[in-house]
Design a protein around this nucleic acid. Structure first.
Lengths: 228, 228
DNA sequence: TGAATAGTGTCTGTAAGACAATATTCC
DNA sequence: GGAATATTGTCTTACAGACACTATTCA
Protein backbone atom coordinates (compact mmCIF):
# COMPACT_ATOMS: atom_id res chain seq x y z
CA UNK A 1 0.00 0.00 0.00
CA UNK A 2 1.35 3.32 -1.04
CA UNK A 3 1.59 5.96 1.62
CA UNK A 4 -0.86 8.80 1.51
CA UNK A 5 0.60 12.14 0.54
CA UNK A 6 0.17 13.39 4.07
CA UNK A 7 2.79 10.85 5.14
CA UNK A 8 5.32 12.07 2.58
CA UNK A 9 7.45 15.13 3.21
CA UNK A 10 5.88 17.91 1.15
CA UNK A 11 8.09 20.31 -0.82
CA UNK A 12 8.62 23.84 0.44
CA UNK A 13 6.56 26.17 -1.75
CA UNK A 14 7.68 29.74 -2.51
CA UNK A 15 7.42 32.49 -5.09
CA UNK A 16 10.28 34.56 -6.49
CA UNK A 17 10.11 37.59 -8.74
CA UNK A 18 12.46 38.79 -11.46
CA UNK A 19 11.72 42.50 -11.55
CA UNK A 20 13.14 44.04 -14.70
CA UNK A 21 13.52 47.71 -15.55
CA UNK A 22 15.57 50.00 -17.78
CA UNK A 23 18.07 52.42 -16.29
CA UNK A 24 21.26 54.00 -17.58
CA UNK A 25 20.50 52.72 -21.05
CA UNK A 26 20.57 49.13 -19.85
CA UNK A 27 18.29 46.33 -18.65
CA UNK A 28 18.46 45.89 -14.87
CA UNK A 29 17.11 43.42 -12.33
CA UNK A 30 15.98 44.38 -8.82
CA UNK A 31 17.51 42.66 -5.79
CA UNK A 32 17.05 42.96 -2.03
CA UNK A 33 19.27 42.10 0.91
CA UNK A 34 17.95 38.91 2.48
CA UNK A 35 16.62 39.42 5.99
CA UNK A 36 16.40 35.75 6.94
CA UNK A 37 18.45 32.59 6.66
CA UNK A 38 19.53 31.02 4.44
CA UNK A 39 21.96 33.43 2.76
CA UNK A 40 20.98 36.19 5.21
CA UNK A 41 22.48 39.53 4.18
CA UNK A 42 23.14 38.50 0.57
CA UNK A 43 21.52 40.26 -2.37
CA UNK A 44 18.83 38.08 -3.89
CA UNK A 45 15.58 38.21 -5.86
CA UNK A 46 12.53 39.25 -3.84
CA UNK A 47 10.61 36.19 -2.76
CA UNK A 48 8.58 34.60 -0.02
CA UNK A 49 6.20 31.90 1.02
CA UNK A 50 2.73 31.50 -0.39
CA UNK A 51 0.16 32.54 2.20
CA UNK A 52 -2.64 30.04 1.82
CA UNK A 53 -4.88 32.20 3.97
CA UNK A 54 -4.74 35.32 1.81
CA UNK A 55 -3.32 34.61 -1.68
CA UNK A 56 -5.79 33.93 -4.52
CA UNK A 57 -3.07 32.09 -6.46
CA UNK A 58 0.66 32.22 -7.15
CA UNK A 59 0.18 35.37 -9.22
CA UNK A 60 -1.43 37.06 -6.23
CA UNK A 61 1.35 35.87 -3.97
CA UNK A 62 3.95 37.33 -6.32
CA UNK A 63 2.09 40.62 -6.48
CA UNK A 64 1.84 40.76 -2.68
CA UNK A 65 5.53 39.97 -2.19
CA UNK A 66 6.56 42.67 -4.64
CA UNK A 67 4.27 45.23 -3.10
CA UNK A 68 5.23 44.47 0.49
CA UNK A 69 8.97 44.24 -0.07
CA UNK A 70 9.55 47.02 -2.59
CA UNK A 71 6.47 49.24 -2.49
CA UNK A 72 6.08 48.84 -6.24
CA UNK A 73 2.92 47.69 -8.03
CA UNK A 74 4.22 46.48 -11.39
CA UNK A 75 2.15 47.32 -14.50
CA UNK A 76 3.06 43.94 -15.96
CA UNK A 77 3.49 40.63 -14.17
CA UNK A 78 3.53 37.19 -15.76
CA UNK A 79 4.39 33.71 -14.66
CA UNK A 80 7.77 32.65 -15.99
CA UNK A 81 8.45 29.09 -14.90
CA UNK A 82 8.65 26.92 -11.82
CA UNK A 83 12.02 25.83 -10.48
CA UNK A 84 12.23 22.77 -8.27
CA UNK A 85 14.48 20.13 -6.81
CA UNK A 86 16.19 18.89 -3.66
CA UNK A 87 19.33 21.04 -3.85
CA UNK A 88 18.30 24.49 -5.08
CA UNK A 89 17.44 25.55 -1.51
CA UNK A 90 19.41 24.32 1.53
CA UNK A 91 16.14 23.94 3.44
CA UNK A 92 15.27 20.88 1.35
CA UNK A 93 13.16 19.80 -1.63
CA UNK A 94 11.61 23.03 -2.79
CA UNK A 95 9.41 24.57 -5.44
CA UNK A 96 9.64 28.19 -6.52
CA UNK A 97 6.98 29.60 -8.81
CA UNK A 98 8.78 32.45 -10.55
CA UNK A 99 7.11 35.47 -12.10
CA UNK A 100 8.74 38.30 -13.96
CA UNK A 101 7.66 41.91 -13.70
CA UNK A 102 8.23 44.84 -16.05
CA UNK A 103 8.46 48.25 -14.42
CA UNK A 104 9.29 51.68 -15.84
CA UNK A 105 12.33 53.29 -14.25
CA UNK A 106 10.23 56.17 -12.93
CA UNK A 107 8.10 53.81 -10.81
CA UNK A 108 11.24 52.53 -9.08
CA UNK A 109 12.31 56.07 -8.34
CA UNK A 110 8.85 56.96 -6.99
CA UNK A 111 8.84 53.99 -4.62
CA UNK A 112 12.03 55.49 -3.20
CA UNK A 113 13.02 52.27 -1.49
CA UNK A 114 16.71 52.39 -0.66
CA UNK A 115 16.88 48.65 -0.08
CA UNK A 116 16.12 47.94 -3.73
CA UNK A 117 19.35 47.45 -5.63
CA UNK A 118 19.42 47.37 -9.43
CA UNK A 119 22.01 45.16 -11.15
CA UNK A 120 22.72 45.11 -14.89
CA UNK A 121 21.58 41.77 -16.27
CA UNK A 122 24.41 41.49 -18.76
CA UNK A 123 27.09 41.06 -16.12
CA UNK A 124 27.52 38.11 -13.73
CA UNK A 125 25.14 38.56 -10.81
CA UNK A 126 26.48 36.33 -8.03
CA UNK A 127 23.04 35.59 -6.62
CA UNK A 128 22.26 32.76 -4.18
CA UNK A 129 19.98 29.77 -4.85
CA UNK A 130 19.31 29.37 -8.59
CA UNK A 131 18.39 33.04 -8.89
CA UNK A 132 20.89 33.71 -11.64
CA UNK A 133 19.26 31.04 -13.78
CA UNK A 134 15.89 32.64 -13.09
CA UNK A 135 17.15 36.02 -14.27
CA UNK A 136 18.66 34.55 -17.41
CA UNK A 137 15.43 32.69 -18.16
CA UNK A 138 13.35 35.83 -17.64
CA UNK A 139 15.57 37.94 -19.88
CA UNK A 140 15.44 35.30 -22.58
CA UNK A 141 11.65 35.14 -22.35
CA UNK A 142 11.35 38.91 -22.49
CA UNK A 143 13.65 39.10 -25.54
CA UNK A 144 11.67 36.41 -27.32
CA UNK A 145 8.31 37.97 -26.62
CA UNK A 146 9.49 41.46 -27.48
CA UNK A 147 9.96 40.47 -31.10
CA UNK A 148 6.25 40.36 -31.74
CA UNK A 149 4.49 42.04 -28.83
CA UNK A 150 3.88 45.24 -26.94
CA UNK A 151 5.68 44.02 -23.83
CA UNK A 152 8.54 46.55 -23.97
CA UNK A 153 6.00 49.36 -23.55
CA UNK A 154 5.68 48.36 -19.91
CA UNK A 155 9.33 49.33 -19.44
CA UNK A 156 8.67 52.76 -20.91
CA UNK A 157 6.42 54.53 -18.45
CA UNK A 158 2.99 56.06 -18.80
CA UNK A 159 3.83 58.19 -21.82
CA UNK A 160 6.75 58.00 -24.22
CA UNK A 161 7.91 59.02 -27.67
CA UNK A 162 8.58 56.63 -30.52
CA UNK A 163 12.35 57.25 -30.46
CA UNK A 164 12.36 56.42 -26.74
CA UNK A 165 10.38 53.25 -27.34
CA UNK A 166 12.64 52.25 -30.21
CA UNK A 167 15.66 52.62 -27.93
CA UNK A 168 14.09 50.18 -25.45
CA UNK A 169 13.36 47.67 -28.18
CA UNK A 170 16.96 48.03 -29.34
CA UNK A 171 18.27 47.40 -25.83
CA UNK A 172 16.24 44.21 -25.63
CA UNK A 173 17.12 42.99 -29.10
CA UNK A 174 20.75 43.92 -28.69
CA UNK A 175 20.92 45.52 -32.12
CA UNK A 176 19.92 48.76 -33.84
CA UNK A 177 16.51 48.68 -35.53
CA UNK A 178 15.46 50.23 -38.79
CA UNK A 179 13.45 53.36 -38.05
CA UNK A 180 10.98 52.97 -40.90
CA UNK A 181 10.37 49.28 -40.23
CA UNK A 182 9.99 49.91 -36.53
CA UNK A 183 7.34 52.55 -37.06
CA UNK A 184 5.53 50.44 -39.65
CA UNK A 185 5.32 47.57 -37.17
CA UNK A 186 4.14 49.76 -34.31
CA UNK A 187 1.47 51.24 -36.58
CA UNK A 188 0.30 47.77 -37.69
CA UNK A 189 0.04 46.55 -34.11
CA UNK A 190 -2.28 49.48 -33.48
CA UNK A 191 -1.43 49.58 -29.80
CA UNK A 192 -0.53 53.25 -29.27
CA UNK A 193 -2.60 56.41 -29.22
CA UNK A 194 -1.04 59.86 -29.61
CA UNK A 195 -1.58 62.30 -26.78
CA UNK A 196 -3.28 65.40 -28.17
CA UNK A 197 -0.85 68.29 -28.05
CA UNK A 198 1.68 66.24 -26.09
CA UNK A 199 5.25 66.69 -27.17
CA UNK A 200 8.57 65.88 -25.65
CA UNK A 201 11.02 68.66 -26.31
CA UNK A 202 14.54 67.85 -25.24
CA UNK A 203 16.97 70.11 -27.00
CA UNK A 204 17.46 72.16 -30.08
CA UNK A 205 15.50 69.99 -32.45
CA UNK A 206 12.02 69.02 -33.52
CA UNK A 207 9.97 67.75 -30.55
CA UNK A 208 8.56 64.24 -30.63
CA UNK A 209 4.93 63.21 -30.33
CA UNK A 210 4.01 61.57 -27.03
CA UNK A 211 2.06 58.32 -27.04
CA UNK A 212 0.48 55.99 -24.52
CA UNK A 213 -0.60 52.35 -24.67
CA UNK A 214 -4.22 51.89 -25.69
CA UNK A 215 -6.47 50.69 -22.89
CA UNK A 216 -6.96 47.27 -24.50
CA UNK A 217 -3.23 46.61 -24.22
CA UNK A 218 -2.95 47.94 -20.69
CA UNK A 219 -5.58 45.44 -19.53
CA UNK A 220 -3.66 42.51 -20.92
CA UNK A 221 -2.18 41.71 -17.53
CA UNK A 222 -5.51 40.76 -16.07
CA UNK A 223 -6.65 38.83 -19.12
CA UNK A 224 -3.51 36.75 -19.09
CA UNK A 225 -4.16 35.69 -15.53
CA UNK A 226 -7.74 34.69 -16.32
CA UNK A 227 -6.60 31.99 -18.64
CA UNK A 228 -6.01 33.51 -22.04
CA UNK B 1 6.46 38.56 14.89
CA UNK B 2 5.58 36.78 11.71
CA UNK B 3 4.98 33.07 11.94
CA UNK B 4 7.61 30.80 10.50
CA UNK B 5 6.56 28.96 7.36
CA UNK B 6 6.37 25.73 9.30
CA UNK B 7 3.46 27.19 11.23
CA UNK B 8 1.52 28.05 8.07
CA UNK B 9 -0.49 25.48 6.17
CA UNK B 10 1.60 24.56 3.15
CA UNK B 11 -0.05 24.13 -0.26
CA UNK B 12 -0.56 20.66 -1.69
CA UNK B 13 2.01 20.17 -4.44
CA UNK B 14 1.31 18.01 -7.48
CA UNK B 15 2.21 17.54 -11.14
CA UNK B 16 -0.21 17.05 -14.04
CA UNK B 17 0.57 16.18 -17.63
CA UNK B 18 -1.16 17.17 -20.85
CA UNK B 19 -0.16 14.33 -23.18
CA UNK B 20 -0.90 15.27 -26.79
CA UNK B 21 -0.87 13.05 -29.83
CA UNK B 22 -2.34 12.85 -33.34
CA UNK B 23 -4.91 10.22 -34.23
CA UNK B 24 -7.72 10.05 -36.78
CA UNK B 25 -6.42 13.20 -38.40
CA UNK B 26 -6.93 15.20 -35.22
CA UNK B 27 -5.07 16.40 -32.13
CA UNK B 28 -5.95 14.33 -29.06
CA UNK B 29 -5.26 14.49 -25.33
CA UNK B 30 -4.73 11.43 -23.13
CA UNK B 31 -6.89 10.92 -20.03
CA UNK B 32 -7.11 8.23 -17.35
CA UNK B 33 -9.90 7.16 -15.02
CA UNK B 34 -9.11 8.49 -11.56
CA UNK B 35 -8.41 5.75 -9.02
CA UNK B 36 -8.59 7.94 -5.92
CA UNK B 37 -10.77 10.68 -4.46
CA UNK B 38 -11.53 13.38 -5.30
CA UNK B 39 -13.45 12.77 -8.55
CA UNK B 40 -12.76 9.02 -8.33
CA UNK B 41 -13.83 7.26 -11.53
CA UNK B 42 -13.86 10.41 -13.67
CA UNK B 43 -11.61 10.83 -16.70
CA UNK B 44 -8.83 13.29 -15.91
CA UNK B 45 -5.28 14.22 -16.88
CA UNK B 46 -2.58 11.92 -15.50
CA UNK B 47 -1.08 13.45 -12.37
CA UNK B 48 0.30 12.75 -8.93
CA UNK B 49 2.25 14.00 -5.99
CA UNK B 50 5.88 14.97 -6.13
CA UNK B 51 8.00 12.32 -4.41
CA UNK B 52 10.64 14.30 -2.57
CA UNK B 53 12.59 11.11 -1.94
CA UNK B 54 13.05 10.14 -5.59
CA UNK B 55 12.26 13.00 -7.99
CA UNK B 56 15.14 15.18 -9.22
CA UNK B 57 12.72 18.02 -9.99
CA UNK B 58 9.20 18.60 -11.28
CA UNK B 59 10.25 17.49 -14.76
CA UNK B 60 11.41 14.16 -13.31
CA UNK B 61 8.18 13.82 -11.36
CA UNK B 62 6.15 14.39 -14.52
CA UNK B 63 8.24 11.84 -16.43
CA UNK B 64 7.78 9.30 -13.63
CA UNK B 65 4.02 9.83 -13.42
CA UNK B 66 3.63 9.41 -17.18
CA UNK B 67 5.77 6.30 -17.25
CA UNK B 68 4.11 4.64 -14.26
CA UNK B 69 0.54 5.44 -15.21
CA UNK B 70 0.62 4.99 -19.00
CA UNK B 71 3.76 3.00 -19.79
CA UNK B 72 4.81 5.69 -22.25
CA UNK B 73 8.16 7.50 -22.27
CA UNK B 74 7.41 10.67 -24.24
CA UNK B 75 10.06 11.87 -26.72
CA UNK B 76 9.22 15.44 -25.80
CA UNK B 77 8.26 16.87 -22.43
CA UNK B 78 8.29 20.51 -21.41
CA UNK B 79 7.02 22.54 -18.50
CA UNK B 80 3.88 24.44 -19.44
CA UNK B 81 2.78 26.50 -16.46
CA UNK B 82 1.86 26.19 -12.81
CA UNK B 83 -1.76 26.40 -11.72
CA UNK B 84 -2.58 27.31 -8.16
CA UNK B 85 -5.24 28.54 -5.77
CA UNK B 86 -7.56 27.59 -2.94
CA UNK B 87 -10.47 26.29 -5.04
CA UNK B 88 -9.01 24.38 -7.97
CA UNK B 89 -8.74 21.20 -5.85
CA UNK B 90 -11.31 20.35 -3.15
CA UNK B 91 -8.48 19.19 -0.89
CA UNK B 92 -7.45 22.80 -0.33
CA UNK B 93 -4.90 25.40 -1.47
CA UNK B 94 -2.96 23.57 -4.12
CA UNK B 95 -0.20 23.94 -6.69
CA UNK B 96 0.00 21.89 -9.86
CA UNK B 97 3.13 22.11 -11.98
CA UNK B 98 1.86 21.17 -15.43
CA UNK B 99 3.99 19.73 -18.23
CA UNK B 100 2.91 18.89 -21.73
CA UNK B 101 4.16 15.87 -23.66
CA UNK B 102 4.22 15.19 -27.39
CA UNK B 103 3.92 11.55 -28.41
CA UNK B 104 3.58 9.88 -31.83
CA UNK B 105 0.42 7.83 -32.22
CA UNK B 106 2.43 4.63 -32.71
CA UNK B 107 3.95 4.96 -29.22
CA UNK B 108 0.49 5.04 -27.67
CA UNK B 109 -0.46 1.93 -29.57
CA UNK B 110 2.75 0.15 -28.53
CA UNK B 111 2.13 0.91 -24.85
CA UNK B 112 -1.16 -0.95 -25.33
CA UNK B 113 -2.65 0.50 -22.18
CA UNK B 114 -6.42 0.13 -22.31
CA UNK B 115 -6.93 2.63 -19.51
CA UNK B 116 -5.56 5.46 -21.64
CA UNK B 117 -8.41 7.29 -23.33
CA UNK B 118 -7.79 9.78 -26.12
CA UNK B 119 -10.15 12.74 -26.45
CA UNK B 120 -10.18 15.24 -29.33
CA UNK B 121 -9.01 18.60 -28.01
CA UNK B 122 -11.37 20.59 -30.21
CA UNK B 123 -14.51 19.44 -28.46
CA UNK B 124 -15.56 20.17 -24.84
CA UNK B 125 -13.73 17.80 -22.53
CA UNK B 126 -15.70 17.79 -19.28
CA UNK B 127 -12.63 17.23 -17.14
CA UNK B 128 -12.50 17.77 -13.36
CA UNK B 129 -10.33 20.33 -11.53
CA UNK B 130 -9.01 22.98 -13.93
CA UNK B 131 -7.82 20.31 -16.34
CA UNK B 132 -9.71 21.74 -19.28
CA UNK B 133 -7.90 25.05 -18.85
CA UNK B 134 -4.62 23.13 -18.75
CA UNK B 135 -5.41 21.40 -22.03
CA UNK B 136 -6.39 24.64 -23.71
CA UNK B 137 -3.23 26.32 -22.47
CA UNK B 138 -1.09 23.45 -23.73
CA UNK B 139 -2.70 23.42 -27.16
CA UNK B 140 -2.26 27.15 -27.46
CA UNK B 141 1.41 26.87 -26.48
CA UNK B 142 1.96 24.06 -28.97
CA UNK B 143 0.29 26.01 -31.77
CA UNK B 144 2.36 29.09 -31.02
CA UNK B 145 5.63 27.20 -30.89
CA UNK B 146 4.86 25.17 -33.99
CA UNK B 147 4.98 28.27 -36.14
CA UNK B 148 8.74 28.51 -35.86
CA UNK B 149 10.05 25.23 -34.47
CA UNK B 150 10.50 21.53 -35.03
CA UNK B 151 8.08 20.59 -32.23
CA UNK B 152 5.47 18.96 -34.48
CA UNK B 153 8.05 16.35 -35.50
CA UNK B 154 7.64 14.76 -32.08
CA UNK B 155 4.05 13.98 -33.01
CA UNK B 156 5.15 12.24 -36.19
CA UNK B 157 7.00 9.13 -35.10
CA UNK B 158 10.53 7.94 -35.73
CA UNK B 159 10.38 8.31 -39.51
CA UNK B 160 7.94 10.20 -41.67
CA UNK B 161 7.49 11.71 -45.11
CA UNK B 162 7.22 15.40 -45.85
CA UNK B 163 3.54 15.16 -46.86
CA UNK B 164 2.81 13.42 -43.55
CA UNK B 165 4.67 16.10 -41.62
CA UNK B 166 2.94 18.85 -43.53
CA UNK B 167 -0.43 17.33 -42.60
CA UNK B 168 0.51 17.50 -38.91
CA UNK B 169 1.58 21.13 -39.21
CA UNK B 170 -1.72 21.86 -40.95
CA UNK B 171 -3.69 20.18 -38.17
CA UNK B 172 -1.92 22.34 -35.60
CA UNK B 173 -2.23 25.56 -37.57
CA UNK B 174 -5.80 24.85 -38.51
CA UNK B 175 -5.25 25.85 -42.13
CA UNK B 176 -3.74 24.39 -45.31
CA UNK B 177 -0.10 25.29 -45.92
CA UNK B 178 1.63 26.11 -49.16
CA UNK B 179 3.62 23.07 -50.23
CA UNK B 180 6.56 24.96 -51.68
CA UNK B 181 6.82 27.35 -48.73
CA UNK B 182 6.55 24.48 -46.29
CA UNK B 183 9.40 22.60 -47.90
CA UNK B 184 11.52 25.72 -48.14
CA UNK B 185 11.08 26.35 -44.43
CA UNK B 186 11.86 22.77 -43.48
CA UNK B 187 14.98 22.88 -45.63
CA UNK B 188 16.12 26.15 -44.06
CA UNK B 189 15.65 24.80 -40.54
CA UNK B 190 17.98 21.97 -41.53
CA UNK B 191 16.48 19.61 -39.00
CA UNK B 192 15.73 16.53 -41.11
CA UNK B 193 17.92 13.92 -42.74
CA UNK B 194 16.67 11.65 -45.52
CA UNK B 195 16.83 7.93 -44.87
CA UNK B 196 18.94 6.31 -47.58
CA UNK B 197 16.71 4.20 -49.77
CA UNK B 198 13.77 4.71 -47.44
CA UNK B 199 10.48 5.32 -49.16
CA UNK B 200 6.88 5.22 -48.09
CA UNK B 201 4.78 3.67 -50.81
CA UNK B 202 1.09 3.85 -50.10
CA UNK B 203 -0.86 3.40 -53.30
CA UNK B 204 -0.63 3.79 -57.02
CA UNK B 205 1.59 6.83 -57.05
CA UNK B 206 5.11 8.03 -56.60
CA UNK B 207 6.51 6.96 -53.19
CA UNK B 208 7.69 9.64 -50.78
CA UNK B 209 11.14 9.98 -49.26
CA UNK B 210 11.35 9.04 -45.58
CA UNK B 211 13.07 11.41 -43.15
CA UNK B 212 14.02 11.48 -39.49
CA UNK B 213 14.89 14.28 -37.09
CA UNK B 214 18.60 15.02 -36.88
CA UNK B 215 20.21 13.99 -33.63
CA UNK B 216 20.79 17.59 -32.55
CA UNK B 217 17.04 18.20 -32.59
CA UNK B 218 16.18 14.97 -30.86
CA UNK B 219 18.40 15.95 -27.91
CA UNK B 220 16.60 19.22 -27.41
CA UNK B 221 14.47 17.76 -24.63
CA UNK B 222 17.43 17.30 -22.35
CA UNK B 223 18.98 20.66 -23.16
CA UNK B 224 15.75 22.45 -22.35
CA UNK B 225 15.67 20.94 -18.90
CA UNK B 226 19.28 21.91 -18.21
CA UNK B 227 18.44 25.53 -18.34
CA UNK B 228 18.55 26.65 -21.96
C1' DT C 1 20.66 80.26 -40.71
C1' DG C 2 22.69 75.97 -38.83
C1' DA C 3 22.58 71.94 -35.93
C1' DA C 4 20.03 68.34 -34.27
C1' DT C 5 16.50 65.07 -34.05
C1' DA C 6 11.51 63.77 -35.63
C1' DG C 7 8.85 61.99 -39.08
C1' DT C 8 7.72 60.43 -44.11
C1' DG C 9 8.25 58.91 -49.09
C1' DT C 10 10.37 55.88 -52.25
C1' DC C 11 13.33 52.32 -54.07
C1' DT C 12 15.18 47.75 -53.93
C1' DG C 13 16.12 43.15 -52.58
C1' DT C 14 14.38 39.14 -50.20
C1' DA C 15 11.12 35.86 -49.01
C1' DA C 16 6.42 33.82 -49.26
C1' DG C 17 2.65 32.10 -52.01
C1' DA C 18 0.47 30.74 -56.61
C1' DC C 19 0.90 28.08 -60.50
C1' DA C 20 2.54 24.70 -63.23
C1' DA C 21 5.66 21.27 -65.01
C1' DT C 22 8.06 16.98 -64.20
C1' DA C 23 8.83 12.35 -61.70
C1' DT C 24 7.53 7.86 -60.16
C1' DT C 25 4.64 4.40 -58.78
C1' DC C 26 0.68 0.82 -59.48
C1' DC C 27 -3.05 -0.73 -62.24
C1' DG D 1 -1.08 4.74 -70.99
C1' DG D 2 -3.82 6.69 -66.93
C1' DA D 3 -4.54 7.96 -62.21
C1' DA D 4 -2.57 9.54 -58.24
C1' DT D 5 0.65 11.73 -55.41
C1' DA D 6 5.73 13.44 -54.82
C1' DT D 7 8.99 16.75 -55.97
C1' DT D 8 10.94 20.74 -58.25
C1' DG D 9 11.10 25.12 -61.17
C1' DT D 10 9.42 29.68 -62.05
C1' DC D 11 6.65 33.77 -61.71
C1' DT D 12 4.36 37.23 -59.03
C1' DT D 13 3.37 39.74 -55.10
C1' DA D 14 4.04 41.46 -50.38
C1' DC D 15 7.01 42.99 -46.94
C1' DA D 16 11.44 44.53 -44.68
C1' DG D 17 15.41 47.38 -44.80
C1' DA D 18 18.26 51.22 -47.04
C1' DC D 19 18.36 55.75 -48.35
C1' DA D 20 17.08 60.16 -48.64
C1' DC D 21 14.11 63.99 -48.14
C1' DT D 22 11.12 67.14 -45.41
C1' DA D 23 9.66 69.16 -40.72
C1' DT D 24 10.36 71.58 -36.49
C1' DT D 25 12.69 73.20 -32.75
C1' DC D 26 16.49 76.12 -30.31
C1' DA D 27 20.67 78.72 -30.38
Amino acid sequence: MKPDHTDLPQPICTVDIVLLTVRDDGLMVATLKREHAPYIGRSALPGGYIHADEDANAFGAAMRVIRDKTGIVPPYLEQLSTFSGPTRDPRGWSVSIVHYALVPGELIAQANNASVQLLPVDRPLALPFDHELMVRTAVERLRNKSQYSSLPCFLAGETFTLPQLQRIYELLMGEPLNKVSFRRKITEMDMLEPIEGGFETAGAHRPAQLYRLKAAFRQRLMLLERGL
